[in-house]
Design a protein around this nucleic acid. Sequence first.
DNA 1: GACCAGGTGTCCG
DNA 2: CGGACACCTGGT
Length: 290
Amino acid sequence: MVEVRSQEFDLQKIADSGQCFRLTPTAPGRFQLVALGRSLLLESTPSGVRLDCSQAEYRALWQPYFDLNADYGYFRGAIPAQDTYLTAAAEFGRGIRILRQEPWEMLVTFLLSQRRNIPAIRRSVELLCRACGRPLAGAPEVFAFPEPQALAALPDDALAGCSLGYRAPYVRAAAQMASDGRLPLDKLAAADDETLCQALRTVPGVGPKVANCVMLFGFHRLSGFPIDVWMERVLREHYSGGLDLSPYAGFEGVIQQYLFFYAREHGCPQGKSAAARSRTNRAVSPKESE
DNA sequence: GACCAGGTGTCCG
DNA sequence: CGGACACCTGGT
């Protein structure tokens, strides 16, 4: 058992933040995480989080996984007080952390995420793991996320059976590319942001949003700033003059998580259409064209 | 039973 | 480059 005492580590918020899909509540305050080819039980405590693992395993795996060496209070401290919306969002989201998840799993997961709600995404991820993921030792009916080779070799009907819909060919192509060297995920970990982003975009079904999610959640590039329909609403309704990201250079993605989580948890005035475009590391502004 | 969901590829002006 | 439209299912 390891206890992490911190007000900057909230399992429930992380589970609801939409960055991970295999951190699941098992009882009030209790969670099971399947990641890194293992299963981990966790529990929220009044002062932080208790992890059911050895001190050695914690230091080797879970401390980095939960990004527990980073100072999220410092990130929030960069928010100017006059930005009252972001200040409120960040306070509301205190305890969210950007996990260091595996690149391959994030690529597939966010390929699957397009035009779907979170329960449907979870379901497909679970089906994929059951279809061809390695069974975990000592944890019956729990399966690791499948390796690229396993997904590349999965028969068409089995793949379709995971309810991927039109995304099935995307997943297939990604698996083949990751297997045959066209998409060298290991090497890309050392590439600069731009190179990494371009490489991810060569996978069919990976557009700007998915690429930013994979960079942020799979490669821990905190400058990633995914813009989805929720962020578009936030930007339109609260930052019509444009959101200046320059105060948050190097951790734009943390700010994105606060805004996204806040908008989601508060429900939303259903709206669609017109959008703010953006490029990583630039100011997000509706009329920025350059 | 519609209606829509954490986008993207494609086509067309 | 901006806008329209189709796309597989399963949630609510």
